[in-house]
Design a protein around this nucleic acid. Sequence first.
RNA 1: GGCCCCGUAGCUCAACUGAAUAGAGCAUUUGACUACGGAUCAAAAGGUUAUGGGUUUGAAUCCCGUCGGGGUCACCA
Length: 592
Amino acid sequence: MINTELYLTQKVQEALASLYGAEGLPVQVTATRKEFEGDLTVVTFPFLKISRKAPDATGEEIGKYLQEKCPEIESFNVVKGFLNIKFSPVMWGGLFKEMAETPDWGQGAPTGRTIMVEFSSPNTNKPLHLGHIRNNLLGSSVSSLLKACGHNVIRVNLVNDRGIHICKSMVAWQQTAGGATPESTGIKGDHLVGDYYVKFNDIYKEQIAALVKEGMSEEEAGRQAPIFKEAQAMLVKWEQGDPEVRALWEKMNGWVYEGFAKTYAALGIEFERTYYESQTYLFGKSLVEKGLESGVFFRKEDGSVWCDLTADGLDQKLLLRGDGTSVYMTQDLGTAQKRFEEYSLDEHIYVVGNEQNYHFQVLKLILGKLGFDWADSIYHLSYGMVELPEGKMKSREGTVVDADDLIENMYNTARETSIELGKINDMDEKEQDELFRMLSLGALKYFIIKVDPKKTMLFNPKESIDFNGNTGPFIQYTHARICSILRKAAQAGDEAGVSSLGLFIPKEVEIIKILGRFPDKIQEAGQAHSPALVANYCYELSKEFNQYYHDVSILREENKDVRQARLLLLSVIARTLVKGMGILGIKLPERM
RNA sequence: GGCCCCGUAGCUCAACUGAAUAGAGCAUUUGACUACGGAUCAAAAGGUUAUGGGUUUGAAUCCCGUCGGGGUCACCA
């Protein structure tokens, strides 16, 4: 019996059937609040209609029934309509033994379902910033989470490598760089290209200002500025396959990819497959034909094709321009179809910011109208923006937190803190470097992942990211502490094991209860697409352990059976933390 | 303006999808290392869950109004 909540739910249902003749009623089971005696609590209010008794009397009646029928239930009490159930310590001891013997504790059984997760999806005209980090960490951890739930997961990236914005960097580079390369300047490729994107906008602004001075309207100047016209002309040449433009495009994109690869490696982000928009942007055109035939789409006089969504409370949506070229939506429709066919997906998750909620709403709607039954299997994992104290990050105004800078700062902080504490002086340089990486990334990743994905979150560069309290390093510290104890026990030849189920004291039962929830927590988090739930779980477990550690001796416990049971408890806690934090992409050190 | 999302301690975040006295961390104040690791632990203080109504035995959670913040309404991606 590993799932106590499920067990109790079933028993209460039996009780309801036997006492009141009611079948299949939903039962609310929650953890008992700390101030009351008990492990799990059943809410009796929903049963009053069938019991025709007061809340307390109903609770007493059900409690009595349960205690008689279930040997695992030691006692019960009723407070204001809440039936608190207390299981026997031996029951908890047995449950603990079961989980200790389960290999890969927390891993869900294979489901056979295949889920694709698209995330990251960067532009090649600027380096990654904190917003992208949230996207990458979410996408990566959700993928691991779904794997832990037992699904097959395919992680994909869709690189936005074409369009007018890329041409802007290219034009600016041509005009002002004098042939500068990452090698010649020593600047990381994605940053170098990003610099010329910024440069474009500077020149663009100057030219607009000059034209406005000559009497042109702002709007007109925006269209007439020479550098802008040049970027447009370059896009046309790109689409025509002009060899020179293509060569430049490939060269500059190559620099960006090298830069991205470093950042991805630093964050531990990987993909099974990378798509490029330059290869997918024509997808979806055949779907337009299909939609026109079936009357889902219609054509206007200028030849453009639209989908009318006014009946669904939305607007009309463009799918094909008058000149026959396709738009973002067209491409996404086609890409989705290809992926579902090629991989026979059961679900497709898009990790994309909530500014695109409308886009995905429309995407699903149109796919449904086109008759694809998998349209409902698309899930937009819509996450909130990362804001700074001054508000939203804006690339053009330079108010972005650069990913590489942030990672480096975190590394330095981790190093300073570690050296100051002076516990790792005997490590060689390589070990130290590895540790500082682990800690800095642990702090950064945990900081971002612990927040509910849907919510806007705030990052204050001045305060940076803490290493104390509810943080990644706190959990890493907990793990290092446990490892330290286990190391010493091993040196003394002490083995971990449970010889009797009744050895555990109440505080240990508290921990066992938390451990027992782990597999459910992973499933719950997977269904909610929320790694944050796993992060908060790991914190709760760590906190509980640290309290326990403070009050109870492990190595100095004289009773050998008790001591060895405690060692086993510690190793299960450590295993659980490694598994849980592993889902978040956070490694736990054995020393720090 | 239409549609969508958000508003919880000074700050950053929780609250198991409607349950008991809304919980953590940071910051502040105080206490605990000649004891298995003090990146820890214990304690104090901090709240009319923006606001007004409604539904319910029960609301931070569901419904309506108001105020405040954000997003989106491109032949950009």
